[in-house]
Amino acid sequence: MRRVGLLVGAAALLGLAACGTTTGTAKPTPVAQASPDAPVAVAAAVQVPAGQQLVGEYPATGVQTYSCTNGAWKGLEPAATLVDKTGKPIILHSRGPVWVSTVDGSAVEATPVDGAKNDVKGAVPELLLKTKTARGDGLFGKVSYVQRLATEGGVAPSGACKNGAQISVPYKAIYTFFTPAA
């Protein structure tokens, strides 16, 4: 079941925008709202292994923050909010990467699976991530895999930058969560 609603980024909630000095300015990329009934295409590179069952699918809006090191942009952290089917923010996504349920306090930290990424032109790559740690008995207590799909935006600016500068680039994605099948 696709969960679509009002997408509100964590950075927007905090009033964050680009920080620091940059040589360019990242602008939000307009994106189309996904249809609630449209299936999410999943590239072979980011398929979840057999023996897993989908337990949640949530749209996310937020930012990918980059820091300038040695004159080049390097990924620092994501900050996004995932919403339920009514548009209510229920999950916060941050550095780790980590997802925390604001409903039950459960959390999952995951790490990208080697080679499991699908480059999407003009967007951060789609990813397959495997759980590193999980806590709590709620939504994320038994999660084994996470997918980042249908990505839009979030790509680091091109060109040189001033060391120490930071910039946050808007992005959207759909995150899916899996547990081992019973």
Rank of each mutant, 00 (worst) to 15 (best):
1 M>L: 10
3 R>V: 08
4 V>L: 12
4 V>Q: 09
4 V>T: 12
5 G>E: 08
5 G>L: 10
7 L>A: 15
8 V>P: 04
8 V>D: 09
9 G>N: 13
9 G>T: 10
10 A>E: 13
10 A>F: 11
11 A>H: 13
12 A>W: 07
14 L>K: 12
14 L>P: 06
15 G>F: 14
16 L>M: 15
17 A>V: 13
18 A>L: 09
18 A>V: 13
19 C>K: 14
20 G>T: 04
20 G>Q: 10
20 G>P: 14
22 T>K: 05
22 T>M: 11
23 T>C: 13
26 A>L: 15
29 T>Y: 00
29 T>F: 00
29 T>L: 13
34 A>P: 03
35 S>T: 07
35 S>Q: 09
35 S>D: 14
36 P>N: 06
37 D>G: 03
39 P>E: 07
41 A>N: 02
44 A>P: 00
45 A>T: 07
45 A>K: 11
51 G>Y: 07
51 G>M: 07
53 Q>E: 15
53 Q>K: 15
54 L>N: 04
55 V>G: 03
55 V>D: 08
56 G>V: 10
57 E>R: 10
57 E>Y: 01
59 P>S: 03
59 P>M: 08
60 A>V: 14
64 Q>D: 03
66 Y>F: 15
67 S>A: 15
67 S>G: 15
67 S>D: 14
69 T>Q: 12
70 N>K: 12
70 N>T: 09
70 N>Y: 06
70 N>P: 01
71 G>I: 03
73 W>A: 04
74 K>L: 10
75 G>D: 05
78 P>G: 11
79 A>G: 13
82 L>E: 05
82 L>I: 07
83 V>G: 00
86 T>M: 00
87 G>M: 00
88 K>A: 06
89 P>R: 03
89 P>H: 04
90 I>N: 00
92 L>C: 01
93 H>M: 04
93 H>I: 10
93 H>E: 09
96 G>N: 02
97 P>N: 12
97 P>K: 08
97 P>H: 03
97 P>G: 11
98 V>N: 07
99 W>C: 05
99 W>S: 01
102 T>R: 12
104 D>M: 08
106 S>G: 14
107 A>D: 04
110 A>G: 12
114 D>Q: 10
115 G>Y: 03
116 A>W: 01
118 N>R: 00
118 N>D: 06
119 D>M: 09
120 V>I: 04
121 K>M: 02
122 G>Y: 04
125 P>H: 04
125 P>T: 09
130 K>F: 00
132 K>L: 09
133 T>R: 07
134 A>L: 02
134 A>F: 02
136 G>E: 06
136 G>V: 03
136 G>D: 02
137 D>I: 02
138 G>T: 06
139 L>W: 03
139 L>G: 01
142 K>M: 00
145 Y>P: 01
147 Q>F: 04
147 Q>P: 02
149 L>M: 01
150 A>E: 03
151 T>N: 01
151 T>S: 10
152 E>Y: 00
153 G>N: 01
153 G>P: 07
156 A>N: 06
157 P>G: 05
159 G>Y: 07
160 A>N: 12
160 A>M: 11
160 A>W: 10
161 C>W: 12
161 C>E: 06
162 K>G: 11
166 Q>H: 15
167 I>D: 11
169 V>T: 07
169 V>H: 05
170 P>R: 07
171 Y>E: 08
173 A>D: 03
175 Y>Q: 08
176 T>M: 07
176 T>L: 05
178 F>D: 01
182 A>W: 01
182 A>S: 13
